[in-house]
Design a protein around this nucleic acid. Sequence first.
DNA 1: TCATAATCGAGACGGTACGTCCCGTCTTCCT
DNA 2: AGGAAGACGGGACGTACCGTCTCGATTATGA
Lengths: 189, 189, 189, 189
Amino acid sequence: MTGKKKEPRSRNEILNAAIEMLEFTSYSSLTIEAIASQAGVGKTTIYRWWENKAYLVLDAFLMAVDSKFEFNSNNPVQDTFKQHLEVLARILNSKIGKSTLSIVTENEEIAKKFYTSYLSLRRSEAKQLLQAAMEKGEVQSIINTDVVLDMLYGPIYFQILIYKKVPDEDYINELLIQVMKGISIPNQS
Amino acid sequence: MTGKKKEPRSRNEILNAAIEMLEFTSYSSLTIEAIASQAGVGKTTIYRWWENKAYLVLDAFLMAVDSKFEFNSNNPVQDTFKQHLEVLARILNSKIGKSTLSIVTENEEIAKKFYTSYLSLRRSEAKQLLQAAMEKGEVQSIINTDVVLDMLYGPIYFQILIYKKVPDEDYINELLIQVMKGISIPNQS
Amino acid sequence: MTGKKKEPRSRNEILNAAIEMLEFTSYSSLTIEAIASQAGVGKTTIYRWWENKAYLVLDAFLMAVDSKFEFNSNNPVQDTFKQHLEVLARILNSKIGKSTLSIVTENEEIAKKFYTSYLSLRRSEAKQLLQAAMEKGEVQSIINTDVVLDMLYGPIYFQILIYKKVPDEDYINELLIQVMKGISIPNQS
Amino acid sequence: MTGKKKEPRSRNEILNAAIEMLEFTSYSSLTIEAIASQAGVGKTTIYRWWENKAYLVLDAFLMAVDSKFEFNSNNPVQDTFKQHLEVLARILNSKIGKSTLSIVTENEEIAKKFYTSYLSLRRSEAKQLLQAAMEKGEVQSIINTDVVLDMLYGPIYFQILIYKKVPDEDYINELLIQVMKGISIPNQS
DNA sequence: TCATAATCGAGACGGTACGTCCCGTCTTCCT
DNA sequence: AGGAAGACGGGACGTACCGTCTCGATTATGA
């Protein structure tokens, strides 16, 4: 009746070891054995909690990213989205971020978990933001929010995953301007 | 005229073997040994032409995709882009397409070759298309073409790579409409 | 009189579990963990009493074999030896017997304990038997008892350990006859 | 049609590595990995030829023992047997010999191969020796040769396997004398 | 009567070796 | 002489147990 089952101390050490090793190794040449020895842990301990390297790295990502999002939605939508996109670009461009994307890309199961544990949460935040803006009259209310959000977030993923470039402030600004052009309410004068 | 003596027949057999095997195997569990035996070829022969599995698969992708693009740029931009995006979605969603994206994602070298051998070509086609439309007065000329193209193509990659969904006609239509709203010349009447 | 309070009940359960499991498993694929779970006991409890699997199995053997020997030395030597050898063959050929021999063979420490707890006791019984026979004039007194006993017991171990055959009554009879030929007093007529 | 398939050079290196390592390690703590690295060979290479450690060690034994037996059967039986037993004791008492016995003891499959590749050959030599002696009138012809041979060889195995003693010259002499007493033709004078 | 301790099951833990898979290279043999 | 077939050294995999070590739950006691 004491509640949650214990979260063993070694769990965090393993996740941290994974993150550290990804700083100087690619995901595919990251080995469970190396993580184990780096974390001072037996391989068995790792396999006890994670089915495979992919799930481990995803958990490491989730831990690294946890509670990074705090947004003030009183600002104009555009500003808040700007923050959103900048944080996203920074996260996705980190070593652990890129590794995570790489496994999401190639592994449908992981993609599913990535979606439920991370993506859908960010997405619904963003959706609320957009809807609040609609209600405040900042943006048109006839738009398809999902498509608009893909137009904002898709290019960020695209740049990082395919072009291997980090979207900088300028890029994000231009992107926002261009998207806003299509959704903002023309004349509030 | 029986065909160039270099690029021996076995090269294509190997690429085809790779494509066939990717129909029922994931990229990561595809092995050089299996390809070799499927192609009726020694491993040595494969390593003679490709440094590793990644380059082989990329070449297989390029072969599969070769001369798929024939567009009529007399149609209105929107229609041509629609074709572009639909072909792209189909290609990326094929087994070989997804495998290729997955290695592009995780391997910078491959990403470079993917860029020069495929992406930059498509991108400059698209750019020309957009510029032609500007000249024809179909779209505003003040726009940042790269950002606009990312707004079109990024969401397609995003949907396939991350959401694991194939963008269907409706999605593509909505996407185009939304992008056009931001770039088309409002009312020339 | 119900039994000493020390040597708790679980000790016997463990030994019995080991014996039972050896009925359908080889010694080398018998695991402490399996014994523990079969005996409904924690691994710790086993390690509390036995240094390792070998000592446990040796103890199981000693328990299984305990008080199996009751011989009537009024019969002629040959008859008593016949009983001895038959009992021995039966014991050694049991699952626990063969397992025990196998660890005696490969582990000097165990061999030592096997010697002091089992073999030397049987050996001195046999020696006494032989000496009684000498005194009774049934056999020559000049003989080297150790060698003679080895000629009787050695072949039994040999057959079981190396030839993997159980010496049957015929074999034992022939062996006894042949040994007696070399030690019996020639003409009692 | 060139005959036997090639015996790869590394085969002997592996067997020698095994023999060397057994000089300072027990069979049970001998590992395939260690043999491989000692022999400068991949594990795979070992597993390609031997199903497991036991077969490898048995082959090492057979190689070590190969062509060790050269006997002059013009001497009196007893002398030839003396040589036989001494050589046997030496072989069985070597590290590789004891290891081999230990696996023969615990593994029926190995025992079978040990029998066909080694034991039965020695045994039939010994049998021929005994029969020659019968024909020469040195020993009684009514005897059961198998039992007599067990009386000679059994004790040697017994001493080494169970008593962990090396039968020395004296022991072998006494054993031979005692066995001969039961089989030699009393007095042909 | 209840706290306080001793015992023990359950099983997590660091570790070692297993036997398998595939890599990328090297060798052999056949055509 | 060129290429298939596949042996080779290597290294990571994921599994099985080892022997040690907490951790509670269950008794068992004695204040």
